[in-house]
Design a protein around this nucleic acid. Structure first.
Lengths: 211, 211, 211, 211
DNA sequence: AATGAATGAGCATTCATTCAT
DNA sequence: CATGAATGAATGCTCATTCAT
């Protein structure tokens, strides 16, 4: 929100496209080799520019990591928001949101993993911003839960909306960072089980579904 | 299966104590600065030995990381196993196991986080071993679920035991890696909510509890 | 003898004013940060032109340093020459010249220091020219001494005119490069002492003044 | 006095000899190419060690410059002090001190020049220390002047001791940094002229000597 | 076994200069 | 003439690992 990476380059259009190039090139590199083992030279080469050019659009290697995290979060958030339905029932809306989120996690496995494993290399202000974005995504669910509690659709202990919202997000991300253990599980089965569990955690006993 | 780190040193007792020293010193360093930003010199100094000595007990810096992960996992596993009850009801035994595991996660927050953030720096064979250990821990829950399904205490879709076991573990670890977001939540509230949600995911409808 | 810096630009008037801009901007930068730590980008920005434009009026960064040295020397020389009196007595004329020179040194402290500290970064031909200019300034005093020796006003060992002329110049410059040590000394006291010492070095014993 | 450069190396004897090696190698390099144009790799090679080794004895390139300046000043100071006579007359002692100092300046021309041209590249605390050392050298003359004033051998305006001491030092250093202009002058002539001028600046009229 | 000095490949970053527009 | 994006060689410095003692 507040953090902006300075650049020598004046043309904002060019700045946007070049940084997009850099992010495009950096994601697979960071994903495969990790942030520390990726060199700026590799970054430059993969971005199709010279090191000098790279450093016109970015001030440090950490800036690239930040751009990458920001980009991934924006993608996740926008894909999640686009799928938010207009259905009148919060219950339905939450279920659809969770399902949509799980599908986003499925599609963006590698990227989610990247954020989990590399964000600790971010300088403080960047990290703060990245966590703020993560919070923003969580708040989508928190908001739905809060609505449902207010109209009586959901029954939660006071203040539990935040905790459950985070549980939802983590339950989705788990598909990415437990990939090695869940290779035998079909996404549809994973999704069905998580949706059930999470919805039941919000619904009053009477409304719960069983498999 | 079990990877063993070679050493120049013959005396196995000495080997054990010195490596314990190294692990002891490495955990806080890796936790605070991360694996890559910790130097071998810092490692040696914090271990109370010279670099030369350090390299008598270890062959690479990655070895230290592996020792650390191994140590943490052993600690988690032993603490978890020690708390497994002899109660006749699987339902009770699972609930107690989950509660015990959550408490371990609470106690070992920093260490859990360390494994999450640094294990990708492990060389392939080490990583495999670490994941195997993680699996072993998960299997504690998988086993309980399987028992419960067999005696009719739990009702799960076929093959869902693995998935739910991982969900339990992740739900616990989340207390460590979502610390930044859950600072306002009391551990007891967190534990109560997770236990309810996870038990309800295993129990047949009739047996479920509501808050 | 006179080194000329080539330029792409045809209009000599424009060339002059733009180079003046550059010198104007460069003096404080070189003074504060030194030649090596001043970047061409800073030079361009401070000159109010683009790097591209800068390089139309100059061929290398060293060119700028040369222009700066040249400008400072011209300033020193012209201020010195302007103050040369028409008095009939060489003794009076030398004393006035020394006093004038010391005042110039006082006014141009920072610039004198700049030449002392940075001129060794000049490429050979430029350095030669700068030293030639320094010589030209020294010759003002050498000439006066020679006149005085010829008409018997001064008494010097054969060939000592050059040495004493340099001593005069250095005694003045010292006000600039010993600034850090002479902060407590008032300029008037400094000037009085130096003039006395230097004049007495030229005058025959009988004519000497004591404080 | 206060500034000490840290080192990884523990053996103080080794530290001393290796740093001496570095200084030995650095002086001609800095003298010829200047501080900025000398690379750490050149420094290492000329010192007969690897870059890694160099950086065990020094923390930055600036440290080397500081060591060099320190070494030169120590040399100047010790050579000056060693030549201070025990003669009963301050007048004689000052004259001998000036002569000795001029001879030191003659022997150490290149080194004196080095300090003049490169010390501005020193980080603040180092620069301060170097100037303090320069002051210490100046105080040798200041002290003699003060003694002479007290016993009536010298006659100076109040407070002029400091100024004249600096003038003496600069008059000597000038032999180094005006080398290019004084090539035709014999050292003995230079020395004779400066000693006369400087002594006469301190002596009361009656005692003055004429060439 | 222990020490710690030595090695040097490797890295992030800078900056004078060029050149297409 | 002016602009400013692009280039890439060069630089200071780090750090895992080795090895003579």
């Amino acid at each position: 929100m507040t953090v902006t990476i300075p650049s020598q380059v004046k043309d904002p259009e060019l700045l946007r496209t070049r940084r997009a190039q850099i992010v495009q090139a950096a994601v697979p590199l960071f994903s495969e080799k990790g942030f520390h083992k990726t060199t700026t030279r590799e970054l430059a080469r993969a971005s199709g520019m010279s090191i000098g050019a790279l450093y016109e659009y970015v001030q440090t290697k950490e800036d690239v990591l930040f751009l990458v995290c920001q980009h991934i979060h924006q993608e996740v958030e926008s894909q999640l928001r686009v799928s938010l339905s207009e259905h009148t029932s919060v219950v339905v809306r939450l279920r659809l949101a969770i399902e949509a989120f799980l599908r986003v996690m499925d599609r963006m496995q590698a990227d989610v993993l990247l954020i989990y494993q590399e964000s600790k290399s971010l300088p403080e202000p960047y990290l703060k911003e990245v966590l703020a974005h993560e919070t923003r995504i969580t708040q989508v669910f928190e908001q739905l839960l809060r609505e449902g509690v207010q109209d009586g659709s959901f029954r939660l202990r006071p203040g539990e909306e935040i905790l459950l919202a985070h549980t939802i997000v983590v339950a989705g991300q788990m598909w990415a960072f437990r990939r090695w253990a869940l290779k035998a599980v079909a996404f549809e089965d994973f999704a069905a089980a998580q949706v059930d569990m999470l919805m039941n955690a919000a619904l009053p006993v009477a409304e719960r579904d069983a498999p």
